[in-house]
């Protein structure tokens, strides 16, 4: 078992009387990719924002390298649900925005490489409003990666994309991970996406949000089309699906 990079230890988050997240515990290992899977409104964003130090937990603790996370940390990069680019800035200015805040000097070579990597070279001057959803999401990933975070958190990075673009983006994330080996945790609605990308899949159930199961995905990388079409993947998909519907039923009965 690899050592834990990010630990979520009994995290509880309530908005007033409403408990969005109840007693969540799991960890994200160093250089591991963890998928967080769960139905809409089950508290996934709440969980990820807490992991990024953007929410104060009602109780419990998030630890990065064993040190409690009490606020935003430069080692943690967050890619928001729906790109979240600043519409009044062009792509280049969007990618430089974090540097303006931190005062760090941008690594122009790295930015150029990342833009090239995600196929956005030549779009530096484009305004976000003129770009497709997929391009915006790729730009948001570049913005986060340009900070060279040790941990990359992504909130439904490809939720709004069509199946083709989505698959392409999944391969891109795999490539980037194989290149940089950052620790990644991402949220998704898609079981296929989770199985394709993750080393482990944390399944949440809603109202209040808590961990219902954790699946290990023991598949070699890169995950080729043949691997993804294997019996093992089919069984895993079925097991996850069964777990989710089961969770829903018990949730409704309660």
């Amino acid at each position: 078992m690899r050592s834990a990079k990010l630990e979520i230890d009994g995290a509880v988050k309530a908005y007033g009387d409403f408990v969005a997240l109840s007693d969540c515990s799991f960890s994200v290992g160093r250089n591991e990719i963890v998928a967080i899977l769960g139905p809409s409104g089950c508290g996934k964003t709440t969980l990820l924002w807490s992991m990024a130090g953007l929410h104060e937990l009602t109780s419990g603790e998030i630890r990065l390298d064993g040190v409690p996370v009490t606020g935003p940390r430069p080692e943690i990069g967050l890619v928001f649900q729906e790109a979240n680019l600043l519409p009044w800035r062009d792509l280049d200015a969007n990618i430089h925005f974090p540097f303006e805040i931190t005062g760090k000097r941008p690594d122009h070579g790295l930015i150029a490489h990342l833009l090239d990597r995600v196929g956005l070279s030549g779009f530096e001057g484009a305004m976000p409003g003129t770009l497709s959803g997929g391009m915006q999401q790729r730009a948001a990933i570049v913005r986060a990666l340009a900070q060279e975070p040790q941990v990359l958190l992504m909130d439904e990075p490809f939720g709004a994309l069509d199946a083709f673009t989505r698959e392409e983006m999944n391969r891109l994330v795999e490539d980037i991970w194989m290149e940089a080996r950052t620790t990644i945790a991402f949220i998704t609605h898609s079981i296929e996406e989770a199985v394709f990308l993750a080393d482990r899949i944390v399944v949440l159930t809603g109202r209040p949000g808590r961990v219902s199961r954790i699946h290990e995905v023991d598949l070699p990388r890169p995950r080729t089309t043949e691997i993804m079409a294997s019996r093992e993947v089919f069984d895993l998909n079925a097991a996850i699906k069964a777990g989710i519907t089961g969770g829903h039923r018990s949730g409704k009965a309660a």
Binding site: W49, L54, P74, F80, E82, L86, W88, F97
Partner: peptide, 25 residues
């Protein structure tokens, strides 16, 4: 909320949030 959280995630001060997010918006 998301744009302000974006700025906060990089450690932006209240003043930075005002000039770089609220004012342009």
């Amino acid at each position: 909320a998301a744009k302000i959280a974006l700025a906060r995630s990089y450690g932006a001060s209240t003043l930075q949030i005002f000039w770089k997010i609220r004012a342009p918006m």
